[in-house]
Design a protein around this nucleic acid. Structure first.
Lengths: 216, 216
DNA sequence: CCTACCGATCGGTAGG
DNA sequence: CCTACCGATCGGTAGG
């Protein structure tokens, strides 16, 4: 924006934002502090003033995503519990959370590949509570006979998370395998949601026509 | 085997194998030629004797995976066409191809993240023909009314590939989100196959009991 | 395949 | 004394 940021935190925020994008696209090891500094428009030493080391910056980037996740989570579960079809709302919101910024999905996928032990901790702390809540919805739906009787709720939710992460993080690459068309992105999302429903509901779940997400 | 490999190609093969593992686990940027050389037990310059540059080695690693894929593919499609349920055989073989060496899945996921343009080319050349063949099976199944009428066959297969890649490449991490148990791996695989079937077949597909893969 | 190196760049720190 | 940086350079390591 302006050449001289008067607020000190502006540079810090900008570094965090640029680092998020570069770590997500290029990976941590292939992103130098110099490259981050260049894109922000400051010196490398300025970056190191706000973040004591490169690994401190990595953790800050991850934490900012987890913070955002924790901010969004209550509303997500609330919307889910208020919805006629709670599960459908949850998977829709999940998809929206990651498509809103695909770099979030890429960063998480990379973390799982690069640092499996740290990622396990993240799974236990940030994912598990949410997963158990959603699995609870599914259990109650199963009692009413709407779901397939042999669903493994927790593992099902885990696979749906996996599917959303993979699909969002490399949507542009995957769709290269099908006929190049303007509606590839739409077909991609619609089929993902259809799979999620059909794998859960015995009747295939709510119809597509009722579920096209409104533009926001 | 022996401390002094008399055949030069043995070193080359060993370099390729070690590089595959390290590129898959640590990523390309975070794997130095020196690290590869150390693990093989030769000098860095020996590695550069067989592969002119680091990027040549990267390409050789990818090519070896694609070669293996092309070797396996005909038999995979043949088994599929001979099977009572062709699709089920295909997804089972796909899952087996990647679980056989999870580093293959990790390497492909990394390639999609690190080099999206090159990965698109790979999708068009190596994945598309296979995807169209499998989608063709699904189309014919749809004609007989066994499948959900609103399946988008090509995109469905794409998502199943995505799901298998993601699930295999980070199985150990994902399962940390559920109750730690000895049968987590089994539940993980069983639910993945159930999702694939239920998302395709109106009746939920073949029962689990008939489909537990034989130990090999 | 090794020893001996190169131009450059890495993450991180010095004094001011 | 503090903050928010700067230009310069540290010891090591990268691919080749």
């Amino acid at each position: 924006m302006v050449s001289a940021p008067s607020q000190p935190s502006e540079v810090r925020t900008e570094v965090l934002s640029v680092a998020t994008r570069l770590f997500a696209r290029r990976g941590f090891a292939d992103t130098s502090l110099q490259l981050i500094a260049d894109e922000v428009g400051v010196t490398k030493q300025a970056v190191l003033h706000y973040f004591a080391s490169k690994s401190t910056l990595r953790q800050a980037v991850l934490d900012s995503i987890l913070d955002h996740w924790r901010d969004v989570l209550p509303g997500l579960l609330l919307a889910a519990s208020a919805s006629e079809d709670r599960f459908d709302a949850v998977i829709g919101e999940l998809y929206r959370f990651f498509t809103d910024d695909p770099d979030r999905a890429r960063l998480i996928v990379r973390e799982m590949l690069d640092r499996p032990e740290e990622a396990k901790q993240l799974m236990r702390e940030a994912v598990r509570p949410w997963l158990l809540a959603v699995a609870g919805y599914i259990e109650s739906g199963r009692e009413h006979g709407r779901h397939w009787p042999n669903v493994d709720p927790e593992v099902y939710v885990l696979h749906m998370l996996q599917l959303v992460l993979g699909a969002v993080s490399s949507a542009g690459v995957s769709t290269a395998a099908i006929q190049p068309a303007s509606d590839a992105g739409y077909r991609y999302e619609r089929e993902l949601l259809r799979i999620a429903r059909a794998a859960l509901f015995r009747d295939g779940g709510p119809r597509d026509a009722q579920r096209v997400p409104e533009t926001r």
